[in-house]
Design a protein around this nucleic acid. Structure first.
Lengths: 257, 257
DNA sequence: CGGTTCATTGAACAGGCTCAACCTCAGTGG
DNA sequence: CCACTGAGGTTGAGCCTGTTCAATGAACCG
């Protein structure tokens, strides 16, 4: 059994047959804290082992790039800790953040062999990295992993359509409220407290996500604070004081208040 | 063989075992004029036959809905003629068009059993309709059809990200120019003339796609006409007179002119 | 501490919106 | 044949939301 990654399935105990450069750790995927909500959900221990053979862990510090638009799209990534922002730039530097990623989310889908957007750490990030080619080989063996990837891409597409509605048609106040609700439901999905809402990104990032300026974001948040809908906690986190009010604002009702 | 659509694959000649209501036409997919650029590209005649068993043709008139947001997502569709718009609404009627679809494009992906957006005919549309459940059965047999669907969804996602950049960060002039370039490249991909550009949708639709108002769309087009970048032809089609100028405007260069 | 980054607030500005009038054109019916 | 109608498109005038420019405050850190 020269290569455990060929179609002849490797036995469960094959560390001695691994590439000599490093000892393969079969455990990281088994121990993965976000597996159940990631692209790796529903995999059998057997399948996880094959994944573990090709995966490498990676850490990225705040403000550092994971990859940049136009880079060769050599890998897919799964966020296991921290927060990532995805963005596109115009030649003159205007920036649009297309999404924030949290533990369990994946990134790296590309259409033309190249990434269509840049990815950067909002706070210290832990990732697992799947080199594309061997990953595809594994997924060819396990179609339901491909199906899972497809489901997650579909969810991303739906989120992108919501964001288009926000960017094209909502007011600044509605955008901020919608954003807070997004963070709440994202936290809920990951089993984290919905209140207070953690806001790991700075005002500039929020602005570039919502199609506004930092000043407008700041002013709008201040106004909602003044109105008693939210309150600011330490660390810049947001305490939602009037959930119904927030929901109403996001839905486009409640012009004042 | 009571039902040819069970997992036991139907033989090649089974029209007598078909539902009595209508004679199955094995040809429509073989004759399909957009197959090569659709989700059905690269299928073998054998696979096409199985598709043909579940597909039904459909026609939708201008202004009529194909489905609406919240409907049960029972089918996927492939556009074979005409133009479709996809959109989302806010409770007060504000509308964001998330995309225009042309022959070869597909629609109907859904996340929760329900469509997340509405689809309507911009001009008379011809569709082929794949009921979801039998389609998934067929795709389970032919994984590369699933792969093709995944590729097209990825392309859609990339387009959505471009659109977010447009909606969040581009000026009205840049949006119009980008839109015209989009139509050009879409026409090119389908082997249609790039100039003049056909504009089958009205000003209101363009506005709701670009996050503007009809007035701003109209004024901006008039300004570009005055500047000699474009000219209007009959049918509302647009003749691009200065392609470099249009490219420059879309890229954010050229503040005046 | 001094320096740097991020957030907040103020004042003036402007791009695109709102409201409104008018034009064109296709269809329709007297 | 022409008047009438209605929808879509264009243009104008004034306004408003969010931007720009600028100053100040707050937190962090070597």
């Amino acid at each position: 059994m020269a290569d455990p990654r060929t179609r002849t399935l490797a036995s469960k105990t094959a560390p001695e047959a691994a590439p000599p450069k490093q000892v393969i750790d079969f455990d990281p995927c088994m121990r993965c804290n976000v597996r159940e909500m990631s692209v790796c959900a529903d995999l059998t221990p057997d399948e996880l082992e094959h994944l573990a053979e090709i995966v490498t862990d990676q850490t990225v510090d705040t403000g550092h790039a994971i990859f940049s638009e136009g880079d060769d799209a050599g890998s897919l990534f799964n966020v296991t800790g921290g927060v990532v922002k995805l963005y596109k730039l115009l030649p003159d530097g205007r920036r649009q953040i297309t999404g924030f990623l949290f533990p369990g989310d994946f990134l790296g889908l590309a259409v033309n062999e190249q990434y269509g957007y840049s990815a950067e750490a909002v706070e210290p990030v832990k990732l697992c990295r799947f080199p594309r080619v061997p990953l595809e080989r594994v997924m060819d063996r396990y179609p339901h992993m491909k199906a899972r990837l497809f489901t997650m891409a579909s969810n991303e597409l739906a989120a992108a359509q919501d964001q288009m509605l926000l960017l094209g048609r909502k007011t600044a106040r509605e955008r901020i409220a919608s954003f807070l609700l997004q963070l709440q439901s994202s936290a809920k999905r990951r089993g984290q407290p919905v209140n207070p809402v953690r806001l790991p990104m700075n005002r500039g990032d929020i602005a570039d996500f919502l199609g506004l300026t930092t000043e407008t974001v700041s002013r709008t948040i201040s106004a909602m604070k003044r109105a008693g809908v939210i309150a600011l906690r330490e660390g810049g986190n947001v305490d939602v004081r009037d959930q119904d009010g927030l929901d109403a604002i996001a839905a486009g009702e409640r012009a004042e208040a």
